[in-house]
Design a protein around this nucleic acid. Sequence first.
DNA 1: TATGAATGAGACTTCATTCAT
DNA 2: AATGAATGAAGTCTCATTCAT
Lengths: 200, 200, 200, 200
Amino acid sequence: MKLSAQSKADKRQAILDAALRCFSRDGFHATTTGDIVREAGVSQGALYLYFRSKDELILALADDRRRSDALIAVLVAHEDDPLRGVTELMELYGRSLIDPQTREIRRVAVQGWAEALRSEAIRDQTLRAIAEVRGLIVETIRKGQESGLFRAEVSAAALADILIAAFNGLTLRTAWGEALDLEPVGQTLAEMIRRLLLPS
Amino acid sequence: MKLSAQSKADKRQAILDAALRCFSRDGFHATTTGDIVREAGVSQGALYLYFRSKDELILALADDRRRSDALIAVLVAHEDDPLRGVTELMELYGRSLIDPQTREIRRVAVQGWAEALRSEAIRDQTLRAIAEVRGLIVETIRKGQESGLFRAEVSAAALADILIAAFNGLTLRTAWGEALDLEPVGQTLAEMIRRLLLPS
Amino acid sequence: MKLSAQSKADKRQAILDAALRCFSRDGFHATTTGDIVREAGVSQGALYLYFRSKDELILALADDRRRSDALIAVLVAHEDDPLRGVTELMELYGRSLIDPQTREIRRVAVQGWAEALRSEAIRDQTLRAIAEVRGLIVETIRKGQESGLFRAEVSAAALADILIAAFNGLTLRTAWGEALDLEPVGQTLAEMIRRLLLPS
Amino acid sequence: MKLSAQSKADKRQAILDAALRCFSRDGFHATTTGDIVREAGVSQGALYLYFRSKDELILALADDRRRSDALIAVLVAHEDDPLRGVTELMELYGRSLIDPQTREIRRVAVQGWAEALRSEAIRDQTLRAIAEVRGLIVETIRKGQESGLFRAEVSAAALADILIAAFNGLTLRTAWGEALDLEPVGQTLAEMIRRLLLPS
DNA sequence: TATGAATGAGACTTCATTCAT
DNA sequence: AATGAATGAAGTCTCATTCAT
């Protein structure tokens, strides 16, 4: 009985979802494949019909592609309004930090950071995602500078790195369950960027 | 042959050093106690004369107390010159990020972040260290505001969180071995802080 | 390849049998799980598919349920003939003491007695089995007393305890491999009981 | 500094006492030499100055020589009054069963029974002690038979075995901490012996 | 395609004993 | 004689992966 492509994809996704829950709860290493198949309601063997190994499952969940895609989309959407682009980027990031739906994803992402230290595949994937977002931030700032909107003395690359670093640092804090008051943090960061970029 | 407190501490430290090298290279979980004792040049049993378990070893290495202590020292040293305090803090942090000697520590710290998601002991320890640094940053900024040096409208807490987040984010990037050009990053961040805090 | 309940029970029993042989030969503590799986012809991991731990295996073998069940059956079978019941009980017990097939069981039972000192689970199980047999012996004697067959002055409980104590003591002696001549022992004990219970 | 023979013997005894407490509490195998030296307040190495190995310590405590010596003394003391000898034997045994001071000894003795299954040295020692007591009981009964006091038809050897078996079985029950009511048990057993031995 | 029993390497930890001091 | 740090073999149990059905 051949499974339709649809139900095959469904089952694969069900396993991924189960793995995300397990990894978020217990971490990559304390999670056993037994935990995952139990959570997914499939058989032990089924896991290996859809994934080559536990590591492949980790790799598939180690970065948060959905988030970086969203960030990229925002920057692209506002490419003719650099200030708006940067502002919206921060808005979006801030919202994602407090969205309870992405809590598991953020926790797993932090674990992915640790795994990226050891696994070249995970590191490549993670760095590529960061580089992509970073590239677009740089481009956005450059555009603002070229149009005379932003101060030309500012290093676009440095600012991009600072933004990404701050984002990652905040992701970390919220992943730990700390109740950060993100409202003033967002406003203060926005103010810092404005004062840096806009001519006084 | 009763060991002196000194030589006992030395041996304990030798094991810690070996564990740090192993953890940095292979991660907490892929490192076996066998790896550690081989690296330390002691017997399997010796490990348990100095540590109750592998977990205790992980806990002992999961945060980077030396770094947070140094940060605190800097802030305390310049408590009558808030602007200098914040600047020196950034200097120190920046230097530590490129110091090859602390590379292993930074790699292990990132793994500690992931472990902190699962282990209450590690999380407590990590959050406590962060809270301590954060508290001193807030205090330093407040002092500057009270003396009229800094703009009173700025949220000291928010700025402290942003700084810490950026620091952590940069630690992460350097832990991965990325060759960040930290010079402009540091200058840009300093400029952002000055423009935010100092009256224009 | 879902195992049928039958073959699952069979395999469990095969491991139990192997463990019995090992425990009888080397004792609970000198027997390793490696010994057991080798004797059973299964893999290390297989043991843990059928038993949660080595302790569970010990618990499962620590008392001799088959023997106490047989004793109970005898007493129940002759509940309308108390003298016969007691006599048959002794017969059965005596036969079991010299049955080479139960030699391993008796050796393991003695070890269970020692384990019962430390393990509440084993002690509970052992005491429960004894209490059950004891209760039936008491009841049988009481019945004989009520019908006027046995002397009413005899403490049924005390006699039951004496019988059980003697049985256990004899089990111990035979477990050690001593060549007791059980024939006269049985006859003498029977004579003691008759002279105690029957009106002279 | 040469230790006097006295203090050497004292220290040896202190270790034995500590071992008895540990063995009684945790069993031979769950007790570590570390437990014993801690309980005795001596150093790890000291143990091996007084005993060749842990096994030697077990052997030294595995049987209850003090009890069997006392039993023998009673029988010898009344060798010209066989009935009295047997009665006193039972009295003494009964008292020892409820003496809280010998509780640890009885618990360790039961463990010795299990060890005797595996260790030839312990088995020899245990069987020898039993044989000694048994021999004296047989002799006592024989004497009574020869003097016409006891019925000649009774098998002295069988009765001795029954008595010893009952004693051991009762030791077992009390070692488990069961609150047996030994008063009626003793009386009933005495009655059984009288009725068996004395001409009606 | 799907199952889940089976595998067996290997991880962590303990512990009786030794031996340098 | 005495100490206690050190040893390292060995034990129990787990778990990612395979494969017969």
